[in-house]
Design a protein around this nucleic acid. Structure first.
Lengths: 248, 248
DNA sequence: CGAAATGTTGACTATATTCAAGGCAAGTGG
DNA sequence: CCACTTGCCTTGAATATAGTCAACATTTCG
């Protein structure tokens, strides 16, 4: 993957993935008219700097990223991970500047929108405005889950929960036949920072889960040999089909 | 406070508080037309049960509440606290049911809205749709902050942060001359559950902060004798005037 | 090939939890 | 008015979970 590709939104391959709801033609045209040329950024790039004043908006088209906050002495907390289809930059609207940073976990492809696109979408298409509210509320529910983990789960339970939920999200983006092993670009440091653990303890706990046959990571791919048992450790439920989600 | 009072939105006393932005007459009328009769619920009441299927929407008119999640063995994590002006129930839209509970921390007064009000507001008044997105993003930023605390701050720093931020929010709702001592209805158990600490440790840490002259709680009122020092412990910055916020 | 990032491991320490008791104040019912 | 309950706060001792520090191994990549 390199260079710039500008697939029109009406032919966007992401939109064919089952978890995304179909947009009406009018709405799709509006999105396309606001969208700028796709951008590619390398692994590790800071997409939005913590504290940046004016930042752009993006839909993550390909690759993974994460939102994070840091304390002045460098301690870092990852808030949640961003996968293709996630919308980046909503938060800036509420605080005159970014209260968190966003960093690319892999090479990422972004569909940029001007800063006032959030307002334009609301104004010109209530349906899309509603979709944006939906995305904001959905991202909050991810953070809620992480907070529950970090606040009340043991290290083992936290890792189990993280692996479980990321596996589900990653799998949902793949064709059914490829869902045994899903892309998993996190380092142990990322997991530690997401779960509020030290690197050493994350490593030990991860090894324990692997010894129990609950997960396996190899070549950047994650597989869960015994999802039931892992879900039991994680205390994570809700097997139902996740609701369709909007894609801006 | 008892009985039912139905101040029309156009004469709502909350709207006179400086932190809330003024709504246009048309928007105000729409809000008023969707709103039901105000409801009073006692301290401790469950406003939204965890896992409830269909839940109402409310604007918190008076009193405090909190959002929480629990694990099956009873461990509880408080996600964030709700103060007058906060909107309750947005999350339900994204998951077909509540993924978290909401409980009243004091007696609360609620302005109820029908379940489809979120959509109606978007459809009939883009400006209000935008406001709802704003509220969702803003609540997420509160959760982000708590996650940073719970994941990466020490017990002492966590308590300092919680006291600092709640003090600011509570003070902003009061007339300037009453901002020395603000209402603070949390028990130590609430603080423990919000910060991912045990009750015993929360107590010990709280005593230490008090001994250092960093806070004082008496008769349900919180005062911060040395806000600068407390902010330093908390590693919390941003003194600027907080942006005006919408009130639905 | 060498440098840098990531993963691995052990020994030691610290922060925070658990468990167990008891105190105090407010409310309730006889 | 008093006994009793209930909820919240307080405290100490023992324990456990997770962090820190310090190496070293392995992989990746220019």
């Amino acid at each position: 993957m390199r260079g710039i590709v500008n697939t029109p939104c009406s032919h966007c391959p992401l939109r064919d993935v089952a978890i995304f709801k179909q947009q009406q033609k009018r709405e799709l045209q509006l999105i396309e008219s606001l969208r700028g040329d796709q951008i590619v950024r390398p692994m590790g790039a800071v997409l939005i700097a913590e504290g940046a004043a004016q930042t752009a908006l993006y839909t993550l088209f390909a690759g993974w990223a994460f939102r994070y906050k840091t304390l002045t002495d460098g301690r870092r907390q990852i808030l949640n991970f961003l996968l293709p289809g996630d919308f980046i930059g909503l938060q800036q609207k509420v605080a005159d500047g970014a209260t968190h940073g966003v960093e690319a976990l892999t090479e990422v492809w972004l569909c940029p929108f001007p800063r006032d696109a959030v307002w334009e979408l609301h104004r010109q298409a209530p349906e899309l405005g509603y979709d944006i509210t939906w995305l904001a509320a959905h991202e909050e529910s991810l953070v809620d889950n992480n907070l529950l983990s970090v606040g009340r789960r043991s290290a083992k339970e936290r890792l189990a929960t993280l692996l479980m939920l990321l596996f589900k999200r990653a799998a949902a983006l793949l064709p059914p036949e490829q869902r045994q092993r899903v892309p998993f670009p996190l380092t142990q440091q990322h997991m530690a920072d997401a779960l509020g653990l030290s690197l050493a303890h994350t490593h030990r706990t991860l090894r324990e889960l692997e010894r129990l046959g609950l997960h396996h990571i190899e070549d950047g791919l994650l597989s869960l040999p015994n999802p039931r048992a892992l879900a039991r450790v994680a205390d994570v439920w809700g097997d139902g089909v996740p609701p369709e989600r909007p894609l801006i």
